[in-house]
């Protein structure tokens, strides 16, 4: 019973926190330095894992589809299918995993450590709002990096699928590329980027909220990081479903 109330209260607090951040977005001066530093930091911890995860992802999709499609006699569509799978779904998901796992946990640990060392209190007493000074630039940086990362994952994933299809499965380059056009369309890429943008914002918001409400010493920070990653994962998968559902309703699909 009390845990249910607790969950509702936390969600309310988190929502208020998001609104505060939104309001902080419009406040001057814009924290350019912090933003650049954070963008640099988040990309430095997430680019390599993202690239490394997306190569096998593209290959696995090509592998899965390859045999299925061959049985159906539609080899020429392998390219199209893997593009759809990678660009629409795998890209944002890989981005989400990496942003939450690498970027979010780092943000949460950093803010949590500052919280328990009373740095955030000190900052407030010095008349500086930590949401404006620390959270807003982190959220923006995370959104930017997520979008870039999604682009990277798409490119790497599609190339991985291409290499796999052409070099190992004996597909023809022409067919792979030509079938891009058959099912894929520009909005696919756009929706992937929109997803990534939302994931980046959500991951940074959850991580910041968890970090700034950490309590109980170093152990509290550990718990906060752990919870932040778990919550972000759940949230991102739910978001992913929502955006996809809306997308299919709004944008007419090719070939259907």
């Amino acid at each position: 019973m009390s845990t249910a109330v607790d969950v509702v209260r936390r969600s309310g607090e988190f929502f208020a926190f998001c609104l505060d951040t939104l309001r902080g977005l419009g406040r001057r001066p814009v924290q350019v330095r912090e933003f650049v530093q954070q963008a640099w930091f988040i990309s430095s911890v997430s680019i390599l894992p993202a690239a490394l995860v997306s190569i096998p992802f593209g290959a696995v999709i090509a592998l899965q589809l390859g045999s299925l499609v061959r049985q159906l006699g539609a080899q020429s569509f392998t390219g199209a299918a893997s593009v759809l799978a990678v660009v629409r779904e795998a890209g944002p998901i890989v981005t989400a995993l990496v942003i939450a796992g690498a970027g979010g946990s780092a943000i949460c640990a950093d803010l949590g450590a500052r919280k328990i060392r009373e740095e955030l209190d000190a900052m407030q007493v010095l008349g500086i709002d930590p949401i404006h000074r620390l959270v807003v630039p982190r959220v923006l940086a995370s959104m930017l990096v997520a979008v870039l990362l999604n682009g990277l994952v798409s490119v790497v994933g599609v190339s991985g699928g291409y290499a796999f299809n052409v070099l190992l499965q004996g597909g023809t380059p022409g067919a792979y590329l030509a079938s891009f056009q058959a099912l894929g369309q520009l909005p696919d890429l756009v929706v992937g980027e929109v997803k990534a943008l939302l994931f980046g914002a959500a991951a940074a918001l959850v991580a910041s909220y968890k970090g700034m409400t950490a309590k109980g010493g170093p152990k509290g920070v550990g718990d906060a990081v752990n919870q932040s990653v778990v919550i972000t994962f759940m949230l991102l998968f739910a978001l992913n479903f929502l955006v996809t559902a809306v997308y299919f309703q709004v944008v007419p699909q090719k070939g259907s």
Partner: peptide
């Protein structure tokens, strides 16, 4: 509150320096 706080100078129990 942020405006009023500009009147204050506070030293926390363990310094609370930015690490």
């Amino acid at each position: 509150l942020y405006e009023v706080r500009k009147l204050f100078g506070v030293l926390f129990q363990d310094g609370a320096l930015f690490g």
